[in-house]
């Protein structure tokens, strides 16, 4: 139900220090998100494709992810050309807005670029090492603990819900569009919440017994190599360059 497809391969990006990856990803995606010009978006997209190539992902999986991401941009393509206003453009028997199409294209470009960069630079690290990296980057300790703990239990809770749903289906429950279905789903989820609540208490007690004092220690200490420093420094510089270009243009 919740696969971590992207963190298992063994490329340069997968092995790199997650802190460097997070910082450079934040810089590049920030610049692309704030930009309003195609040139910045296209620069970003070229960089994104380079990084994706470097990450050696399975192309099929990446394409499937992009399809899911473009669900919202498809919605924009359906609405913006008809509602945006501005200069009219007649295509056969429909009249669409030129600015609407330009806007939808820009958004699609930026959205795909950001997702690809995020995929190559952030999703290549296991979630657990991301949690520790965020702590080292100065994110509040409690927030990092929340992130690590909830990641730890997401799969457990998902399985708990699925077990309840399976039991309901074995007893003849068929989901349809009616109030009975919604009541059943509500009860199943509420039962999952009750179980999670009680599980949290048990886990909390077990942690206290083992001396938990609000800190979480990682045995895995990674230092960025010289190559990584140069590489990610270069990406960050590129982001600064793109920002300057954007401000000039």
């Amino acid at each position: 139900m919740i696969p971590e497809y992207f963190s298992y391969t063994d490329s340069f990006l997968h092995k790199a220090d997650p802190r460097m990856k997070i910082v450079s990803a934040a810089c590049v995606t920030g610049v692309v998100a704030f930009s309003r010009s195609y040139s910045t978006g296209i620069c970003g997209l070229i960089l994104a494709l380079f990084l994706i190539a470097l990450s050696r992902f399975d192309t099929g999986v990446v394409v499937r992810r992009l399809l899911a991401v473009n669900f919202f941009t498809a919605f924009l393509w359906l609405t913006l050309p008809l509602t945006y206003g501005g200069e009219a453009l007649t295509l056969g028997f429909v009249t669409v807005s030129r600015q609407g199409i330009a806007m939808a294209a820009l958004v699609t470009l930026k959205a795909n670029c950001i997702v690809l960069i995020f995929l190559a630079l952030v999703s290549t690290s296991p979630v657990s090492s991301l949690g520790h990296a965020l702590r080292k980057l100065g994110v509040p300790e409690k927030l990092c603990l929340l992130f690590l703990f909830s990641y730890r239990y997401v799969i457990v809770i998902a399985q708990e819900f699925q077990r309840l749903l399976r039991a309901a289906k074995i007893r003849g429950f068929i989901p349809r569009t009616n109030i009975h279905t919604y009541r059943t789903y509500a009860y199943l989820f509420a039962m999952t919440l009750v179980k999670s609540w009680n599980r949290a208490h048990r886990v909390q007690q077990a942690m206290v017994l083992r001396g938990f004092n609000g800190r979480f220690y990682s045995m895995y200490i990674q230092h960025p190599t010289a190559v990584e420093r140069v590489f990610f420094g270069g990406i960050t510089l590129l982001a600064v360059g793109m920002a300057l270009l954007e401000l000039r243009g």
Partner: peptide, 21 residues
């Protein structure tokens, strides 16, 4: 209480995976 919040956060994540017809 941090574990309770984390667990509910995970449950909230799971809710977004539940599809109702």
């Amino acid at each position: 209480r941090i574990m309770s919040v984390a667990m509910l956060s995970a449950a909230f994540f799971v809710a977004a995976l539940i599809h109702v017809p």
